[in-house]
Amino acid sequence: MSGPITPTRTYYRVFAALIALTLVTVYVSFLELGPWHTTVGVLIGVVKASLVGLFFMHLLHSSKASWLAVLASLFWLGILMVLTISDYLTRHILEY
């Protein structure tokens, strides 16, 4: 893995975006969003995590194998979360 050397300029821009998003997510937590706080917070988190992954961790220039590892881990995380939570969300449906 010896992709191109990322210029420092990119790092600074990504960092600025991350800080901005952090401020946004904290600000949003003061709004009256009712139950949507966690959803909004996690969505902003996904954007931030993608920025870190793509630029700081050089995923943008990484080998296919690295992408495979990332996608596999997310896929399996999805399995764990979706199937477990689906049990809890459907538990009380049949009783009445």
């Binding site: 997510t25 937590s29 966690t38 917070g41 996690v42 902003i44 988190g45």
Partner: peptide
Amino acid sequence: PLLYLTGT
């Protein structure tokens, strides 16, 4: 967001 910013 999960721990600190949950809720208003």
